[in-house]
């Protein structure tokens, strides 16, 4: 089972990197979603898969009786999912704003922070100056 999941993790990671490298910000978001899930799955498998009972402690005793499943990876993944969801929301809004304002989804065409050559810099500055 571990092997199957490990291969799946690898496939998801490969797909996400392919999407992320496409230079298209929407595809980047899809890549990000897949990558986040690949990592969550990785942590889950790293905590060992077992078909033990849930880690519940009976009334009156202080330790669980017999072998129980590892609860820590689930806690970690839960945290990672929450954080990942918040980040995803932010990224969606940021990318949408960017598309609205820059008019492109192609990262190669976004040359506003680093214009080509010094001339473009002063051109942009002048445009800004006259606009103000």
């Amino acid at each position: 089972m571990e092997t199957v999941l490990a291969v799946l993790c690898g496939l998801m990671a490969a797909a996400s990197i392919y999407l992320m490298l496409s230079g298209h910000i929407i595809r980047f978001i899809f890549g990000l979603v897949i990558a986040t899930n690949a990592v969550n799955l990785l942590i889950f498998v790293a905590g060992r898969l077992s078909s033990h009972r849930p880690p519940l402690i009976a009334d009156g005793s202080r330790v669980p009786a017999g072998e129980v499943a590892n609860a820590l990876p689930q806690a970690l993944i839960l945290t990672a999912i929450v954080i990942g969801f918040a980040l995803l929301t932010f990224v969606f809004i940021l990318f949408y704003r960017t598309y609205e304002s820059l008019g492109t989804v192609d990262t190669e065409k976004m040359r506003f922070a680093e214009p080509d050559g010094e001339k473009a810099v002063s051109g942009a500055e002048e445009a800004k100056g006259s606009g103000a």
Binding site: M20, I25, L94, T98, S101, L102, M110, F112, A113
Partner: peptide, 13 residues
């Protein structure tokens, strides 16, 4: 600003 959004997208990615 435009430059900020551009820089921001790359930084975030």
């Amino acid at each position: 600003e435009k430059a900020q959004l551009d820089g921001g997208v790359k930084y975030v990615m």
